[in-house]
Amino acid sequence: MRSVLYVPANSPSKILNAPVYGSDSIIFDLEDAVQPEKKNEARFLLQELLVLDQYDGVHCAVRISDVRSPFWREDLRMLTPLLEASRVRTLRVAKVESEHDLILIDRELGSIERNSALEEGSITLQALLETPLAIEEAYRISGACARTEALVFGSEDYCSATGIDRYGSPFALDYPRSRLVAAAAAYGREAYDTAYGAFRDIEGLEQESVRARALGFIGKSVIHPSQIDVVNTVFSVTEKEAEWARQVLGAGLVDERGTGVTQVEGMMIDTPVISRAQRILARAEKQKR
């Protein structure tokens, strides 16, 4: 997924229009975008709307409240019919700060899967890391449970706690980004970058996206449809990259003299380079769908 569009879960017009904008995934937000007294309304709305035909084939996820809030269990209970029917396959968990947060949710999801004959682990999790504590715990969070498919950076609370002005320098968030990407990669998870809040600043969004991609993220959260095209473009595998990957895989590890070392465009090809080429082609294939 290159672009992941956040949509407030209590707005019928935004929910119903979301699939037309071209994001790779949609996250219906039951957390920050919905006031506490409106959460139940939003849960019923998702139950009724996400079964409509217009979401067929759309990757739908829901952001649920964190495990320290009074809301997450009811979020899960009300989402169960959608999870059982595979209308929602992924939950993005807000404010994850320790491995125990995910273990708790993993158990609940396991129970839903067993009760509905879903394959174990078929409901996947994305962990949203939003605080300095979460960033420091990233490695343990990444390894907490097998159903975690991605770590996601959320920068607002992080910047607030650390005093970082994220718009002051393109490098300001390099440390938490790199730490999150490394922790994700350690367990084979994907990494998604934080949303860019200044949604009218498309140039700034592009710069930040380029930086995030260079640091290893494969996609980015977006909060406005106008951000989707830029993010999709920046995080797409280019034809040049795909061609390089095909050449690498074509060349293989062993050259014709049997020395075990070969090269493409002056670059030595070894096992990690082949792995990278395989990942690039896998992502290119996903983009076509």
Binding site: P12, E41, R43, F44, L45, Q47, E48, L49
Partner: peptide
């Protein structure tokens, strides 16, 4: 949407 609002 009507159904959701009534049910909630």
């Amino acid at each position: 949407v009507l159904r959701a609002r009534i049910r909630s």
